[in-house]
Amino acid sequence: MKLPFGLPREEFLLPGHTACPGCGATIALRIVMKALGPRTVFVIPACCSTVIQGIFPGSSFAVPVVNIPFEAAAAVAAGVSAALEQLGEKDFSVVAWAGDGGTFDIGLQALSGAAERNDNILYICYDNEMYSNTGIQRSSATPIGAWTTTTPTGKREHKKDLLRIVSAHHVPYAATATIAFPKDLYEKVRKARQIRGFKFLHILTPCPVGWRFDASKTVEISRLAVQTGYWALYEIEHGKLRISPAFTPYLDKSRRKPIDEFLKHQLRFRTMTPELKAELERAIEEGIERLKREAELV
């Protein structure tokens, strides 16, 4: 028997992990692991998942895991993948599973190197839009207007558009996802698994601790991110951009919820000025119009 959304019942994230209550990254991890199955190596740099695994000699992962330094995820994954192929292994996945700090910031160089070489790995950035593990500091994935401990009056700059940076490397597959749409996430991972070369998945994973919302609202916040247009769901396959069905309704501005619906639950936006909010709304609108053009819908 399958779980809701057609997800397989078999679990590879075991009970006893040490994530915070309501952790979005852990929900994403559970779905990704179901999609990849047992023949998967996880390569994990410094990030929340370093903690989520649990403490030696225990581990909450039922697949092989290699922990590595902060900026090394893509390169280590490339090494694991090349070696397994060279040693004759077939039908496996090597996943670099990294947070936004390890991807947008310190790991960007290794990520770019592996993407340009088209190394046969699946790089997944679970994005909670800040350095959560060290206690909520700004990263280049933090959105404009958001409070963090290093932007006490709110960040003034926009979030980096990472998927475009990665897809500019001519990679065969790049996509966005978020946990409120588990089937969309699951299917994107299944698709990526079948493609040879460099695959990139960017998952928005709300963080109750850092975003300052109630731990029971993680999925709701994720859904609102999509419904307000804050987080677009799409994929770029061999340069061809396609809007994901779950996001299609929100291409139409009249069907989108006001951005306040997404912002109001999160105390990180409590001090956001009207100017910064207007700038965020403008960027969302511009981003979606650009997606429509590139998907050749207009």
Partner: peptide
């Protein structure tokens, strides 16, 4: 880092 990954394998 690549050597580390490959050696793990």
């Amino acid at each position: 880092s690549v050597c580390v990954g490959a050696a793990f394998a």
